[in-house]
Design a protein around this nucleic acid. Structure first.
Length: 656
DNA sequence: CTAGGGTTAG
């Protein structure tokens, strides 16, 4: 058995000294190189690699000398072959089995490492485990590199227990072993464990620091990432492109423009190569923070743009409200991939351009671009926002027809779409059909609350915790709004306490808005104000003051209404609703001069009351109705029906 | 030969 761990490669012997690795000579030496590769590889079976170009490519990825030639090699192949990475790994795997089973050659440790890497990259844990068992059964010695490769395979497949077991068995783990663990824990969401391993490392290189940085960023600990980066600078750790890309991603995701700009300055001063990826992360930062002038400047400077470059700019323009510019970029992009379509639909939905998002989806169908799960999730939330029930149902049917895997995000989007479109029964149907409900409880609770099924929403919440699922922030929004709609004061207080004290979730302005609404709707204005006084309200606290102001206008409390309106307008000076409600309170109290003052201020500030508008989709056609609107062709019938419904409701209230 | 990076997701 040839089973020793090879040290250096035998390239020096195999490569003729007259062969110069000059890029200009690439074409001429590709063929000889392929032959050398065949000779160098000690297994007979690998000779077949030289038969086709894609097989040659497969091997080239694993040889340092051929990697040098990669540019030239790749240039001689058509694009689709280069990017068919999956096919390449499949080639490596089938060659391996051919070698050990048909040619009965013992693989060297280098070959085993390549095989394990092929399994890891193609996400084929089953084959990997088979090879692992094959190694153990044949008693092949396992060198450090092979141990690391095996650990990495388990880590990448989320089997951190097995990865850790291998690590603990190692006699002499190195910086690669620990870094593999750090990034494995990071992708499993176990930042604390990643931290622990990182802290225990005797030596750390740039890759190790980058892995820890990325551990923070992947799990949303942007502040942690920023302070780790500072530590790198203080300790004078070498930074590289990957460091910058990672830290910039932390800045843009937390919209920390200031630190991002500092890093932009740093990049300009230190010798770091401004790769396209690095420029993308800078553009991404400015686009996310709405500084389109800076993004545009960098974008213009790029010599080679790709789909990502165009997509980042497009997103930025939607975010800054210039969606026409964004659409123009989109339509003029030299090439777009699925991610570009998804990015546009998603960002349009995020900024409430639901109908525009649906138009893009329809366009996508027309030119036959196949949507993926992400497309469908975003489009379903566009349907929810636009109340486009028919299209939502069509997507549901599309999912069934194409056997698309219903993962929890997709189910959640369906449940939410049906709930928002008024079909809570269909929401429940999707919910009940799921095997694992762990990640969709919050959505169904929110849907039930929205439909006024408060008691049921609370029952589902209890079921959720009975199943051992830990409720998240979203679940509590549903629960608290259910309490507020049903006037369940004590229950509301109980759940708020449960959320903050037992589950340690810090309340957002939405939770607080629900609480204020809970008290204020019942006329407990004092309690509502006390609640507000006890919390910190950030710049997105419009819902909190709005809830208080709304209740004040119902109960006619002038003093408190003024207080609420003042605070609301401090956050959002152009909030038309605040002015209207305030003037209603004054009118109720017959303070006509104050009513006039408010109206005049609105005129001076050019604040227009946005007319209330409802819309409904019937047979795929959206119908819009404004306040006092009489323009609909069936207006008379609609109002007759409305009156009948109103009478029915009044009778219902009297009877119950 | 093995470890780290960018756009899309309620």
């Amino acid at each position: 058995m040839s089973s020793t761990c090879e040290g250096g490669s035998s390239w020096e012997i195999l490569v003729p000294s007259e062969v110069q690795f000059d890029v200009s000579q690439m074409e001429e030496i590709v063929e000889p190189m392929a032959l050398i590769v065949a000779k160098m590889v000690d297994e007979a079976a690998f000779r077949i690699i030289c038969r086709t170009s894609s097989e040659r490519l497969a091997l080239s990825q694993h040889h340092p000398l051929l990697q040098l030639l990669e540019m030239g090699l790749l240039n001689s192949f058509p694009d689709h072959q280069i990017y068919n990475e999956m096919g390449m790994w499949e080639n490596v795997k089938s060659l391996f089995w051919e070698m050990v089973e048909e040619f009965v050659v013992d693989p060297s440790s280098v070959t085993l490492v390549r095989m394990i890497t092929a399994c890891t990259r193609s996400g084929d844990l089953d084959s990997g485990k088979l090879v692992h068992r094959y190694i153990e059964e044949n008693g092949f010695p396992v060198c450090l590199t092979l141990e690391n490769a095996l650990m990495n395979m388990y880590a990448k497949s989320g089997e951190m227990g097995e990865a850790r077991r291998l690590y603990n068995q190692m006699s002499d783990p190195d910086v690669v072993s620990s870094t593999t663990l750090v990034s494995g824990y990071a992708s499993s969401g176990l930042v604390e464990l990643a931290c622990e391993v990182f802290d225990s490392m005797p030596t750390r290189n740039t890759v190790a620091w980058n892995a820890m940085l990325s551990a923070y960023v992947l799990n949303g600990h942007f502040e942690g990432a920023i302070s780790l980066f500072k530590e790198m600078l203080i300790l004078d750790v070498q930074t590289d492109e990957a460091t910058i890309v990672t830290i910039l991603s932390a800045c843009s995701r937390s919209e920390n423009l200031l630190i991002g700009q500092v890093i932009h300055g740093y990049v300009c001063k230190v010798p770091i190569f401004k790769t396209r990826e690095l420029l993308h992360s800078l553009i991404g930062l400015y686009s996310k923070c709405g500084v389109m002038e800076a993004a545009e400047l960098l974008f213009q400077k790029m010599d080679v743009k790709n789909e990502v470059s165009w997509t980042l700019m497009m997103e930025g323009y939607v975010r800054t409200g210039r969606k026409e510019v964004a659409l123009e970029i989109f339509h003029n992009m030299p090439s777009k991939d699925l991610a570009s379509w998804n990015a546009l639909i998603t960002v349009l939905v995020q900024y409430n351009f639901f109908n525009e998002a649906l138009v893009i989806f329809v366009e996508m169908q027309r030119i036959k671009v196949s949507p993926n799960c992400i497309t469908l999730v975003s489009t379903l939330s566009a349907c929810a926002g636009a109340r486009a029930l028919d299209l939502g149902k069509w997507i549901h049917a599309f999912i069934k027809r194409n056997d698309i895997v219903m993962d929890s995000t997709l189910c959640s989007a369906l449940i939410d779409m049906y709930a928002k479109c008024g079909c809570i029964e269909l929401s429940l149907e999707v919910f009940e059909s799921m095997q694992s409900k762990d990640l969709v409880w919050s959505t169904i609770i929110g849907g039930l609350a929205m439909h006024g099924h408060s008691k049921l929403a609370l029952e589902y919440f209890e079921q959720m915790t009975d199943c051992g699922v830990v409720p998240d922030s979203i679940a509590f929004i549903g629960v608290l709004s259910a309490c507020s709609h049903a006037g369940l004061i004590e229950e509301g207080k109980h759940y708020f306490h449960l959320m903050t004290e037992v589950y340690g979730i810090s309340p957002t302005s939405e939770h607080c808005g629900c609480m204020v609404d809970l008290f204020a709707r019942q006329g407990l204005l004092r309690e509502a104000k006390d609640f507000i006084d006890g919390i910190y309200i950030s710049s997105n606290g419009v819902a909190i003051w709005g809830a208080l102001l709304g209740a004040c206008s119902i109960y006619g409390n002038v003093e408190l209404a003024e207080y609420a309106a003042r605070n609301l307008l401090m956050i959002d000076p152009t909030n038309a609703g605040a002015y209207v409600l305030l003037s209603n309170v004054y009118a109720k109290a017959s303070q006509w001069s104050d009513v006039r003052k408010v109206r005049n201020t609105m005129k001076e500030q050019r604040i227009d009351k946005i007319p209330g508008c409802s819309s409904i989709e019937v047979n795929g056609v959206a119908h819009e109705f404004f306040v006092g609107d009489a323009s609909h062709p069936q207006c008379e019938e609609i109002y007759m029906m409305l009156n009948r419904l109103e009478k029915m409701l009044q009778n219902h209230v009297i009877n119950s």
